[in-house]
């Protein structure tokens, strides 16, 4: 890859305030390799966003269930954080069985503020966010 061919597709890294850059190795005119900063590459950006779209698509079903009151918002937030039940369990110390129980609206509504706090902290959101979709 030549220096001028290093892609600069800044859909993600080009946003304001983002200091993360991809470093590419590319060749100068005489063929010597040097490091070049890149703000991204289209196919990579697309793969990243596609992966997120899939996550959100799957989480949408959980969101709908929470909106209709069939389920608590917990499962939706868990999926949005790319967590699964075993991982959420290790982050919160709640057993997997308890977590599955808290997916139900009735059980979720009865949760103490402490437990809600634990869940919110594990997913780095506020309790208010946790309780809404």
């Amino acid at each position: 890859m030549k220096i001028e061919d290093v892609p600069q597709d800044g859909q993600i890294l080009g946003k304001d305030g983002i200091s993360v850059r991809d470093v590419c190795y590319a060749q100068d005119e005489s063929g010597n390799y040097t490091q070049v900063f890149s703000v991204g590459w289209q196919p990579k950006n697309e793969a990243l966003m596609q992966a997120w779209d899939l996550v959100l698509e799957e989480a949408e079903e959980a969101r709908q269930a929470a909106l209709s009151g069939k389920e608590s918002p917990l499962r939706y937030h868990m999926m949005k954080c790319l967590l699964d039940v075993p991982m959420l369990s290790s982050y919160t110390g709640q057993s997997k069985k308890q977590i599955r129980k808290h997916f139900q609206s009735e059980a979720f509504l009865k949760l103490s503020p402490d437990i809600l706090e634990i869940y919110a902290k594990a997913m780095k959101i506020t309790v208010a966010e946790l309780c809404s979709v």
């Binding site: 993600i12 983002i18 993360v20 966003m49 780095k124």
Partner: peptide, 14 residues
């Protein structure tokens, strides 16, 4: 990397 604050959202995964 998932909870690193300076990571852009799209780059995050566990």
């Amino acid at each position: 990397v998932f909870y690193l604050p300076y990571f852009p959202q799209e780059y995050r995964f566990h």
